[in-house]
């Protein structure tokens, strides 16, 4: 749609600007303020320049947390995106069963994050959990509270359980928008199942798929509550992701300066990646409407 040029539209945006300025800009500036100051405990601050940033960039702790975070997000995307597409392709197209599947699949998305953690805690414990108990019964040595690998597997499975439906729902919506004529044409051409997917379904899904990847990247990159409830970042530090580490540093140890510098770099990383996604998204949008 071509839009009217009118700078008075700013007045309609004003309420949002004021509200978001209050709940985003002021806190963010507080963080910036902390990141360049040092303190002796009381409210006595003095200028520290970029000291905290230099310290955090060089610190092993941040490298380790960042490494775990990147690895986690990569694993999550590698599993959830193909699985989500696969599920979407297998969903019933219409009628009662389509609604039935939609409602059930959306269920995990609406569960409070800490309850997701609790569900998996209860599900995986060796003494009371169905999964933990069954695995122990068939002789697999599994204990997510002691073994780093088991903890990782548990968190990844939990996240797959929690969020794959999101990817599937978005892809399903994309698939629904493909006109039936496309499939009929493919049938006349005797296209194989794979080429129908590759040349009809995948291009039509690319828009929503991009959103799905963007959302999954963002949310997995700032994951906090689920691993916090499930493992508390342990065993040791093996599942301490960026957010968990940050909260530990800021609220637990009250190291404001380093935590603030950490926050800003964390925020910038997310911002950068999101901007790339957003640019690709809007470019695709523009191409489509042409």
């Amino acid at each position: 749609m071509d839009k009217t040029q009118n700078n008075k539209a700013w007045f309609l945006i004003l309420p949002v600007l004021i509200l978001v300025a209050f709940s985003a800009v002021i806190p963010l500036m507080t963080v910036v303020n902390y990141s360049v100051n040092d303190t002796f405990g009381s409210n006595d601050f003095f200028w520290n320049g970029l000291g905290w940033f230099e310290e955090m960039i060089a610190s092993d702790r941040m490298h380790a947390a960042l490494g775990r975070q990147v690895l986690f997000s990569a694993i999550i995307l590698a599993i959830e995106v193909p699985l989500g597409i696969f599920v979407a392709l297998n969903m019933p197209k219409k009628g009662f069963w389509a609604s039935f599947c939609l409602v059930l699949m959306a269920l995990p998305l609406l569960i409070p994050f800490n309850v997701v953690g609790t569900i998996w805690q209860i599900f995986c414990r060796i003494d009371i959990g169905l999964l933990g108990h069954s695995l122990a019964a068939i002789g697999i040595d599994y204990n997510y509270t002691n073994d780093a690998l088991d903890a990782w597997i548990t968190i990844v499975v939990m996240d797959v359980w929690h969020w794959t439906s999101l990817v599937a729902l978005l892809c399903y919506a994309g698939l629904q928008s493909i006109p039936q004529a496309y499939y009929q044409a493919a049938k006349i051409d005797q296209a194989s199942r794979w080429s129908v997917f590759r040349y009809i379904e995948l291009p039509k899904m690319s828009g929503v798929l991009l959103i799905a990847v963007l959302l999954r990247f963002m949310d997995s990159f700032m994951i906090y509550t689920e691993p916090f409830v499930l493992t508390g970042g342990g065993p040791g530090n093996s599942t301490t992701f960026l957010s968990i580490d940050l909260v530990k540093m800021a609220v637990g140890q009250f190291d404001l300066g380093p935590a603030a510098a950490f926050s800003i770099m964390y925020f910038l990383v997310i911002l950068l990646v999101s901007w790339v996604f957003y640019t690709v998204m809007t470019t695709l949008d523009a191409q489509e409407t042409k």
Binding site: V20, P27, T30, Y224, S243, L246, A250, A259, Y266, S274
Partner: peptide, 15 residues
């Protein structure tokens, strides 16, 4: 506006 949806709540908790 979208960046606010992307900002980790952990960053904002203390401020």
């Amino acid at each position: 506006l979208l960046t606010n949806r992307m900002s980790p709540p952990a960053v904002f908790a203390l401020p």
